[in-house]
Simulated assay, not measured.
Amino acid sequence: MEWSAGAVARMLGISPTTLRTWDRRYGLGPSTRHEGKHRRYNEDDVARLKRMVELTESGVAPASAAASLTPAGDPDFWAAADQLDAARMRRVAVSLIARHGVVHTWDAVLMPFLVELGERVSSASCGVEVEHVASGSISDAMRVSGVALGEPAVLLACAPDEQHSLPLDVLAAALAERGHASRNLGARVPAAALVSAASRLKPRVVFVWAHDRVYAEQVPLDRLEGTPVLVAGPGWDAVPLPGEVQRVDALTTAVETILNRI
């Protein structure tokens, strides 16, 4: 059987607004599509939503509840990674994003995959090549999935000497999914280049990623006055921040904070 959004909301005793929010934020939307018609919820969709209601009513945070409803890894993605099959990894990631959205796919599948892969590399002292190919494939999937037109409201950049730019690709895709364009300067952005780009583009928000304190301390926060600045990554853990600079510690928080400022 298949049901409309209104029917599912009544069945579960939740508002249509909550249902739409869970679809948009966590990818808990209808799986069935019919040409020329609204998407419909099938029995598996409703079962997941019933569990979501149970978890949230028991006090579990919605983001945590939603993440628990998607496997913490995807067997197809792991198989493709083990074979260094970049094209297949990209296809799987794009498919997951289309079904569940950027934020949920990242939080529930891709980030846990990268964490586990990193632990394997650390413990076995091998597998770095898998990590590199997987990261590249995920970046490609994010760029394919997240394209928004218009003037960029957000400037994304890595700290000087910071080479891990995947978080920027993920955030750019998540913002594009909400209809907001960004300008991504990528890895190793010199301090002068960041200041120049902010001056030329006049974004509503500047976002800077750093995974090491040495890199974070090179970011010219004092020269970005007048523009709201968000920073993220473990590199900022012990770095004193000016009062107008805000740190965010999760993709969901970063997206919501940016959307509240643009």
Rank of each mutant, 00 (worst) to 15 (best):
S31Q: 14
L251D: 05
L12W: 13
A176N: 04
L175G: 02
L171T: 01
R188S: 15
A86L: 14
L241C: 06
I97K: 01
T105W: 05
A65Y: 11
G146F: 15
S15L: 11
R33M: 13
A5C: 06
S182N: 01
V103Y: 02
V206Q: 05
A93L: 10
D212Y: 13
W22C: 08
I14V: 15
E43C: 06
L166M: 13
V121W: 15
A254C: 12
F113H: 15
I97L: 13
L114F: 12
R200E: 15
A86T: 05
E129C: 04
G233A: 12
A80G: 06
P234W: 02
T18H: 06
V60T: 15
Y26A: 00
A61K: 11
S95I: 00
H132S: 06
T32P: 00
A176M: 06
A197W: 01
E177P: 08
A197N: 02
P167D: 09
A80P: 11
P220W: 03
G59W: 08
A197E: 03
G233M: 11
R51C: 02
A87Q: 10
W78P: 01
A47G: 00
V121L: 12
L19M: 10
L69K: 04
R33C: 06
D74N: 14
V255S: 03
S182D: 01
P71H: 11
A7Q: 14
P234H: 07
D169F: 14
D212C: 03
D249K: 10
L166I: 14
A181C: 00
E54C: 09
G127K: 07
M111S: 13
L230Y: 12
P190C: 08
S95V: 02
A254I: 12
S135M: 09
D45T: 04
S68N: 06
V255F: 07
A193E: 14
G127Q: 03
A157T: 09
A148C: 09
P190F: 02
C158T: 06
D45M: 07
L84F: 15
A159L: 11
I262F: 11
V206G: 03
L230K: 00
A81K: 00
V205A: 04
V130M: 08
E225F: 04
S196L: 14
G243M: 02
R33K: 10
A173L: 07
S64T: 13
S123E: 13
L230E: 01
R143H: 10
L49W: 10
V130I: 10
T17I: 09
G13M: 13
L155D: 10
D222G: 05
E225D: 01
V248H: 02
L84G: 05
P16I: 00
T21E: 12
T253M: 15
W22I: 02
D76Q: 15
A7R: 14
D169G: 04
H211D: 14
G29R: 03
L12T: 08
S123R: 15
P112F: 12
E35I: 12
E2P: 01
V130W: 06
Q246S: 13
E35P: 07
V189T: 08
S68D: 10
A157E: 10
L185I: 11
T32L: 15
A66T: 12
A5I: 02
